[in-house]
Write a protein that binds this DNA or RNA. Structure first.
Lengths: 104, 104
DNA sequence: GCATTAGTTATACATTGTGATAGTTATCCT
DNA sequence: AGGATAACTATCACAATGTATAACTAATGC
């Protein structure tokens, strides 16, 4: 099954659509968790997800701005969507009826 | 942070209240995930959660029935509730606005 | 050319997930 | 009584995931 950080990465990627790459994904994760996310952790997990066929990445062109190194753009695959859906469904189901089901 | 299996264990424990011990927790997890859950995995995870102070366990008396070995009863602690709440809140938040937010 | 900036890659280690196997304590049956 | 069976708990080894540090690359700006 998916891990929890893998899920965060997948969902951030899906939310960012065409703007998903290292830095933006990292920012998105930090915003939803409220905790710092190390960039190294992110890329290793990205590699693993790609190996499992849950995301596809391609190098974009270098942009004409200071530090404009080529970005590695990320896109979620159908398989990734499937896995994320399944993961969320299970978490949701596990929580039905519990005290923390409806957080403030 | 919590792992995903740890979360399943915590939520099953909370749901089962006074009837939470190895076998019942296992059955509950298998029901919500739809997948088999090995009993060894369960006890190791239980030990780790106890070390972290998220559950408390105590041995119950042996019951007078076939195979009536003493059960290790499990109860979630306030710290465990706190961690589970936090975990679910983050997962929920990560999912807002995505395609799989409202599964059928 | 050298400092600076935005970005990626490599690597090592810690934590969690998971199955196989063994051990304990009871009843059932002959 | 004593072996078969049943309902549990415990241990261990290994795989998969999580996470931080540090190094590398390619652009701009002075």
């Amino acid at each position: 099954m998916l891990g929890e950080f893998e899920y965060l990465l997948l969902s951030a990627t899906a939310a960012l659509q065409d703007e998903a790459y290292g830095a933006t994904i990292r920012a998105a994760i930090e915003e939803t968790t409220g905790a710092p996310c190390s960039i190294g952790a992110l890329y290793t997990t990205l590699d693993r997800l790609e190996q499992k066929g849950m995301v596809k990445t391609r190098m974009g062109g270098a942009t004409a701005q200071r530090g404009g190194r080529a970005k590695r753009m990320v896109r979620i695959t159908p398989k990734g969507i499937e896995a994320a859906t399944q993961f969320y469904r299970v978490m949701r189901r596990a929580t039905i009826g519990l005290a923390w089901e409806n957080p403030s």
